[in-house]
Design a protein around this nucleic acid. Structure first.
Lengths: 344, 344
DNA sequence: ACAGTTTAAGTAAACGTTTAAGCAAATAAA
DNA sequence: TTTATTTGCTTAAACGTTTACTTAAACTGT
């Protein structure tokens, strides 16, 4: 329980020491015009001397704002969200805000419960990537109607009228597919997972468009769904797929599928890129030193987080930003490496 | 500024609706013995009906506790801290606590400033990994003396009497070095970075012990220091080192040095493991699919985060845990892969 | 000299909870 | 039957800020 509490110094303490009213302390510290220059200095000095730190909860209660935001994301296992958080933090820190972090583990129930809690006024705004299986969006709507601004990044919810920071999923999948076709692939499979319709459908769309443009008919059997967890089972699923469908190119649409794909190929004694070429959506720096170096679609994770935070804080600061009009797409980059090298 | 505020329902509202006092509402919701069973039910029912959610800041102010902890870590770029956060979150969520996340970017100044802020009573406890260059620990001592419990994980501060969750850095470096020696290495270099004395000195110690046991004299020139950022410069530093010192084994003591080491070897046209063998302290799942698969020291990141959180929450819950007596070491695992395969 | 304004404070209410203290009615003990 | 005790509720103060309103003194201009 540990309650040492070294006689906390608060405004009352300062007021007593300086023989002025509490209001004077408060106003002096907030640099109000009401207070004389000399008094202000005395207050600031004594506050520093006594290590006064304002109680955020009293302040939040009175002001009805918390200088705190929530970051709600599915997980933090991979490099995308790590980098996005870094981007967010770069703004949060600078703005003297505080960030609460919540992981939904892609569970709708947890997400809904978190939103329920947030309707208490705990945060001034929310930055979020929605859970994979979130279909009912009432919880999000309710928080928004309660006046809490929300900015989506990456895994956006199209039906909520607010700012959305995305990457060009359609186009980057299109480019990845086109790249594989140009490297000679004729039978390209798309490895995907359940959920995240706004993203994965776009990627599927870009994939199909590239195929169509190259007069390749896209077949249902080429689209394969894995579990959204890194596990052995996915390797088996993929091996099964590869042996039956025999693709000569694979696009792995999420980070952890890179390792899965490589291991599946290895177990099947398939050579990348000779027998099969691989592209993956991933931000991992190790892509360059894989066996072989992996061609990746690199997403602007840091920038997405940063941009989302900028919009939210701009809005909170009262700048004339209409969140519902902000729909920003930042480009991903196709980084070509040996895993898709043309074989002749 | 967006202040929609849909007439928030608070205890006053409920009291009015049910025609009882506010105190009755409060006590009913906290299941106090003071309140009759029937009244309790009516209160709970109406609260649910009107979507009442308690104001956390009013509650925190009055109770002088926030149900919130701070996670203070250097960064979140790599898999270690990602996994540790997952471990922490697994407890935080279950205990209905909230987690504020702060990144120090390994800056002492930022860390000190964060601690200063936390002395306001913003959090009930702190989980932290100290910044690389933190030497002056006054800020930590002061927070602790103010009655805020602190639990360290991984990058601990030995001079603060409180719980510390570490991994066996000395022993795992010892094992890694021994492994390299057994694979035939005669000239092993340790690649390290500035800072983190509690960890990196232990790893250096384990490294030296293994050398001594194998009658190999450890030379100063074999210990090389890189920048704690993933960048091109480190590759140059490492190349320079390898060409002059010509090690036949390398131990990279932090995650991002894996990619650096591989790229340096590649640029020097050195074959791993034939020309040089490599071990790295890293948790990345891609280690298995690198070229060649990388022998790693896998740290129990998730478990460390989880254990740290367990201790903190146990203490906060009033369990008889003497934090200053908790000094837990969780074992790392040496995962042998091709990057250290013996060559004959 | 006097009304009007400006300056530099102070007073007190409010934010939404929690809880110690009080109190009337019902129940138990004597 | 009287006295304690328990039950179920209310009152009001407190947590530490912020801020609308008041006030007194010091200027300003005429």
């Amino acid at each position: 329980m540990a309650e040492a509490k070294s006689n906390k110094v608060n405004m009352k303490t300062l007021a007593k020491v300086l023989n002025v009213s509490i209001a004077t302390i408060s106003k002096a510290l907030r640099d109000s015009h009401d207070i004389g220059e000399e008094t202000k200095q005395r207050v600031i000095e004594t506050a520093k001397l006594l290590h006064y730190v304002p109680n955020p909860y009293a302040s939040s209660l009175r002001k009805r704002s918390s200088n705190t935001i929530a970051i709600i994301i599915p997980e933090i296992a991979d490099s995308f969200f790590s980098q996005a958080i870094n981007g967010i933090e770069s703004i949060v820190g600078q703005e003297k805000y505080h960030a609460l972090i919540y992981l939904t583990h892609d569970s709708y129930e947890r997400e809904a419960q978190m939103f329920n809690d947030l309707s208490s006024g705990r945060v001034d705004g929310v930055l979020m990537s929605v859970a994979s299986n979130t279909k009912d969006i009432k919880h999000i709507q309710e928080l928004q109607q309660a006046g809490v601004p929300i900015v989506f990044f990456d895994r956006v919810c199209e039906d909520i009228p607010t700012a959305k920071i995305k990457t060009d999923d359609f186009n980057s999948a299109y480019m990845a597919t086109k790249h594989l076709l140009e490297q000679g692939c004729k039978n390209i499979s798309l490895v995907t997972i359940e959920g995240y319709p706004s993203i994965l459908q776009a990627r599927e769309g870009g994939y199909k468009k590239a195929l169509t443009e190259h007069q390749v008919k896209s077949k249902e059997e080429n689209i394969i769904s894995c579990s959204n967890k890194y596990n052995q089972e996915n390797i088996a699923v993929l091996k099964e797929h590869i042996t039956t469908v025999k693709p000569d190119g694979i696009i792995a649409t999420v980070e952890h599928l890179a390792t899965t794909t490589y291991l599946a190929c290895e177990e099947l004694k398939l050579n990348i890129p000779n027998d099969i070429k691989v592209v993956c959506f991933t931000n991992q720096i190790t892509a360059a030193i894989l066996n072989p170096p992996l061609t990746t679609v690199l997403q602007p994770a840091y920038d997405m987080g940063r941009k989302a935070a900028e919009l939210l804080f701009g809005h909170l600061a009262g700048k004339p930003i209409q969140l519902e009009k902000e729909n920003i797409t930042l480009p991903s980059k196709l980084i070509v490496r040996d895993s898709t090298r043309a074989t002749d």
